[in-house]
Write a protein that binds this DNA or RNA. Structure first.
Length: 230
DNA sequence: ACCCAGGTGGCCC
DNA sequence: GGGCCACATGGG
């Protein structure tokens, strides 16, 4: 059995060879990346694009503008992204917090040690581990790894026999666990923001087209690595 | 008419 | 800690 380090790079190489560089995050500015990270929670990116276009048309695609915007206005504009009432409140709270507490200085925020910045993001309502890691990696260029539903699904299928990235519950059952997955990647990959960026983007691209409900990976970029159906 | 999408938080036991 | 549930639009 190959080592975890080699295994992870083997998967990465196969995906990169198949899909090429993804040029993530899809957004022109850091503010837009942060906004998109909240809008895309459990939502198809195509819907997020519509919401972002609306915000842009209203001149509300910057942190400062969102912080000062009316929640009802935000909700109306981001409607296509779903959960628009929740997300409108959370967007305004998120950027309002930074504007009020830190004068909107994201450079300083992302200059903090990764673990410090991460804990501060997680303390905010509506920012869970995936959103926090997306912000840290793609908006802050800090070396954290983003785990999402695709990552769980793809890697469980790849190595269901090993389960190195699952944890045991007190009852002894194997369970998906965000932090266990994340630590697996951080521990077994070189600390490289560019690599973490590309790896997650590749997993999303692969997940969108494969390993979804299909029972097997026929014609899959990971053929030969994949362990078969879940 | 379903089912799913680059999650999160609240509530119950 | 684990199991449900609400949140909501748009595309297949």
């Amino acid at each position: 059995m190959i080592s975890d380090k080699k295994f992870l790079m083997q998967v990465y190489d196969a995906l990169f060879k198949r899909y090429g560089p993804r040029h993530w995050w899809p957004g022109d500015t850091r503010d837009e990346i942060l906004i998109g990270a909240i809008l895309t929670q459990n939502t198809a990116w195509t819907n997020v694009e519509k919401a972002i276009a609306n915000l842009k048309g209203a001149g509300l695609l910057t942190a400062k503008a969102v912080a000062g915007a009316d929640v009802g206005t935000l909700a109306r504009l981001i409607r296509p992204a779903g959960y628009f009432n929740q997300k409108a409140v959370r967007l305004k709270e998120f950027f309002g917090h930074f504007e009020a507490q830190r004068n909107g200085d994201f450079d300083a925020f992302f200059s903090q040690p990764l673990d410090v910045a991460r804990a501060r993001l997680l303390a905010l309502c509506g920012i869970g581990p995936e959103t926090a890691d997306s912000m840290l990696l793609y908006a802050g260029n800090l070396p954290t790894f983003v785990i999402d539903a695709y990552t769980f699904r793809i890697f469980k299928r790849l190595r269901l026999d090993k389960r190195a990235y699952q944890r045991r519950t007190p009852k002894g059952l194997w369970k998906d666990d965000y932090e266990t997955f994340r630590q697996y990647f951080l521990k077994n990959l070189p600390e490289d923001v560019r690599l973490y960026n590309e790896y997650h983007a590749l997993l999303v691209e692969h997940g969108k087209t494969h390993c979804r409900s299909k029972p097997a990976c026929e014609g899959c970029a990971l053929a030969g690595i994949c362990g078969g159906p879940l």
